[in-house]
Nucleic acid binder design. Sequence first.
DNA 1: GCCGTTTTCGGCCCGACTGTTTTCAGTCG
Length: 579
Amino acid sequence: MNNKDIAKILYEISDILEIQNVQFKPRAYQKAAMNIETLDEELKEIYKKGGIKAIDALPGIGESIAQKIEELLKTGKLKYYAQLKKQFPMDIAGLTSIEGLGPKTAAKLYQKLKIKNLKTLEAAARTHKISKIKDFGEKTEQNILRGLEFLKSSGNRMLLSEALPLAEKIIAELQKVKGAKKVVYAGSIRRMQETIGDIDLLAVSDHPKLIMDAFVGLPEVESIHSKGETMSSVRLKIGRDTDLRVLPPKSFGAALQYFTGDKNHNIEVRKIAIKRGYKLNEYGLWRGKKIIACETEEEIYKKLVMETPPPELRTASGEIEAAKKNSLPKLVGYNDIRGDLQIHSEQTDGSASIEEMADAARKMGYKYMAITDHTKSLAMTGGLNEKKLAQQGKEIDKINKKFQISNFKFQILKSAEVNILKDGSLDINNETLAKLDIVSAAVHSNFKMSRVEMTARIIKAMQNPYLNILFHPTGRILGRREGYQIDIDAVIAAAKKYGVALEIDAYPNRLDLRDEHIRKAVEAGIKLVIDTDSHSPAHLQFMKFGIAQARRGWAKKTDILNTLPADKLLTAFKNLKKK
DNA sequence: GCCGTTTTCGGCCCGACTGTTTTCAGTCG
């Protein structure tokens, strides 16, 4: 029984308690489930080490839920859950994945029509049995059928790199509407989360109706979920939902605050407001019937006696406590990066020449970049061997000389994405590695090793005296694969011991390290780099996603080595090795 | 059922929109 299984059961208990109109408990179970999902250690392990006490100590989990987890870990079953399930034996998670269908509706459908899952739901909707139940009608039935179609056609969430340009395009169209003073994105896009469910937009306008009409009439819109004076929700043709809120100009800051933080952040902030005798909603911070702050986010947070957390941090994971103590970190900025340390050329699997990539990097305002082609054991990319790496080095020397003559103040660093073999050795000899400016390495094969073996393999590679950076340390690909099993704490400890920096790979479907790993690395005091893993000039633009990832991991400028000028960067790598 | 800068007891975030009915429950973010 792993964390996912346990969380799923707790979510289901929450839903059933919700159906039974139990007060407060649903939220408690939901919170516990959410916290369990984000743990990076298995409850099984935590229990083995610290027993029920250690489980009880986890946030959102108290005596009662801890006991239930213990029962699940020991027996694989939970009596309390089985009892609840007897009354409501339907697939609640499946049924409630339909937009607009919640646990209570699922319960009614079960009680009236014995609907247990999506299959029986569809059959009932198609034969018009649903519209005949009391409290249900024609529209509800249609909405259920539409929801079923949507589920069949859509995948999970979209990448930030897909959502951001789409949001920007819609914003550009809405800004043309008469009376539109401001249109911005909020929600998970403003937090720069790695994946996005819905797009949340905010507009400020004195003519809300005009902008709402324009919004639901956009060519990208497929259908309208709801349309009101201040809020509308649509489904786009690409199968994604977008919500727009229109507010009076004065409420802009309050609305931005309200619609940026995730649910947990907002709950926490509103609690603080209540404690201080206020009420906080999307129109402002209220004392009684009087608004005392609303125009900017800063004045609202200030009235609550705290700093304004950067949007990327607003997930109730410590930023509120830090903001109260004025101890929020000064995060690495979107303009702090001076060079990109993972770039591929056409000599392996890139699409452009070294010089073309360098031109693109200079246009980004960088002072340097590293060419990191694959090495020989990655046969499918035509990986370079020792001889070809030496040749590439000579070519780089020539281009650098040319740049010097043109007074470009830009340097190409010699590097490589060296393969870590199954036994943890590198596939390029040390003599050749010694001649590179920076040595980076990554795992590209044998992904399915056990956690113990994979961790040992990577740590062995980190012991190589020439290794400077471990690229995309977990190997995960968003929407495709989990990543290999590693003990991230052990890898971080090894990074510290052997003077190796860890990469934050900015490629939109990698974003590897993950935010919580970055945070651990920062706390452990190890150094990081942010690279794009570019295979074409256009990919260099991905840097902002890597920086966002670093920010969500609480990384400061000083934690990120490629915020340094080239000479200091190379010295920093050397110094890491001396320790 | 959880939690603690009001608290080991008494609180627990907030509002808009829909659908189906006539005043609101359910859902969503």
